[in-house]
Deep mutational scan, measured.
Amino acid sequence: VGDQVLEIVPSNEEQIKNLLQLEAQEHLQLDFWKSPTTPGETAHVRVPFVNVQAVKVFLESQGIAYSIMIED
């Protein structure tokens, strides 16, 4: 199991704000291929294997929908 690319769908401005804060966490080494800008629009982010669980827990705790787009 390696890195994953998640497709994330924020449903409101609050969730977009939370994702932008997540993007700013440099220690997570997230690679946003497509940043969140509009509710209902997908964002794509590559998550290093060591941080996959932490990111998924965060998304679930914020009620942000996501799916695994690419499993490496």
Rank of each mutant, 00 (worst) to 15 (best):
L22K: 03
L59T: 01
E7S: 13
N18S: 13
Q53I: 10
Q53H: 14
D72W: 15
P48F: 03
K34S: 07
E41M: 10
T38R: 12
V5P: 02
K17P: 01
D72C: 10
E26G: 09
E60N: 06
D31L: 07
L30H: 01
K17Y: 13
A54V: 13
V57H: 12
S67T: 12
V50T: 09
G2Y: 12
E7G: 04
E60K: 05
P10Q: 01
I68W: 05
S61G: 10
A43Y: 14
S35V: 14
E71H: 12
H27G: 14
S35T: 14
V45P: 00
L20M: 15
Q29V: 06
P39Q: 04
I64P: 00
S35D: 05
T38I: 12
F49A: 13
G40N: 08
P48T: 04
V9Q: 08
G2C: 07
E14M: 09
E14V: 06
V47G: 01
Q4F: 12
Q53V: 11
V45L: 13
P10R: 00
E60Q: 08
I64L: 04
K56V: 10
A54W: 12
E26P: 12
E26Y: 09
K34Q: 07
Q53R: 06
G40M: 06
Q15V: 03
H44A: 08
P10I: 06
V55T: 03
H27D: 11
Q29S: 09
A24V: 09
Q62R: 15
K34Y: 05
Q15C: 02
I70R: 08
E23H: 08
K56A: 06
S67Q: 10
A43W: 12
Q21Y: 14
V50K: 11
V55N: 00
F32R: 02
V1Y: 13
S61F: 07
N51M: 09
Q29P: 03
P48L: 04
D3V: 12
D72G: 09
D72V: 15
Q53W: 11
K56D: 01
Q21N: 11
D3H: 14
E71L: 13
S11Y: 10
M69R: 06
F49M: 11
L20H: 11
K34H: 08
G2A: 10
L19K: 00
V45C: 05
E26V: 10
F58E: 03
I70L: 13
A65M: 11
Q53P: 09
Q21R: 12
K56M: 15
F32T: 02
N51C: 06
K17G: 08
L19V: 06
K56C: 07
F58N: 02
N51H: 15
I68H: 05
L59F: 03
Q21P: 01
P48Q: 05
A24K: 14
P36R: 00
Y66P: 01
T37M: 04
I70E: 13
I68P: 04
D31N: 07
N51W: 11
E13M: 12
V45Q: 00
Q15D: 08
P39E: 04
P10Y: 03
V45M: 09
I16F: 09
K17W: 10
I68D: 04
I70V: 14
I68N: 04
V52K: 04
V1L: 12
S61D: 09
L19T: 02
W33A: 07
E23M: 13
A65F: 10
D31V: 13
T42K: 09
M69W: 11
V57S: 14
M69F: 09
Q25H: 08
E14Y: 10
Q4E: 09
V5M: 10
S61R: 09
E41G: 05
T38S: 11
F32Q: 02
V52T: 06
F32E: 02
F58H: 04
G40I: 02
E13R: 06
F58W: 15
L30E: 01
L30W: 03
Y66R: 00
V1I: 14
Q62W: 13
N18H: 14
S61M: 13
Q15T: 02
V9S: 09
F49R: 06
I64F: 04
V47K: 00
I16S: 02
H27L: 05
L28K: 03
N18K: 14
G63F: 05
L6P: 00
H44Y: 15
V9G: 02
F49H: 12
A54I: 13
L30T: 03
L6S: 00
E13G: 08
G63Q: 07
M69K: 07
M69H: 05
L19G: 01
L19I: 07
A54C: 06
K34A: 05
S61E: 13
D3P: 07
Q21D: 14
R46P: 01
I8G: 00
A24N: 10
A43T: 12
F58M: 05
I64W: 02
L22I: 05
I8F: 04
L28G: 04
V57T: 13
L22W: 11
I64G: 00
P36K: 01
D72H: 14
F58Y: 13
G63I: 02
F58A: 03
V57Q: 12
Q4R: 07
M69D: 03
V1G: 12
S67E: 13
P39H: 02
V1A: 14
V52C: 05
Q62E: 07
F49S: 14
N12V: 02
Y66Q: 01
E7Q: 13
G40R: 03
L19E: 01
F49Y: 12
D3I: 13
N18I: 15
A24G: 09
S11G: 07
D31H: 13
V50I: 12
I8E: 00
S35Y: 15
T42N: 05
G63K: 07
L28Y: 10
S11N: 11
P48W: 03
N18E: 09
R46C: 06
I8A: 02
V9L: 11
K56Y: 09
E60Y: 04
E23Y: 15
T37N: 07
V9R: 13
D31T: 09
E23N: 13
G63D: 07
V55K: 00
P48I: 03
Q25D: 14
E14C: 05
V5W: 13
P48M: 03
A43S: 10
S11I: 15
L22Q: 03
F58C: 03
V45I: 13
S67A: 08
Q62Y: 15
P10F: 10
V5Q: 05
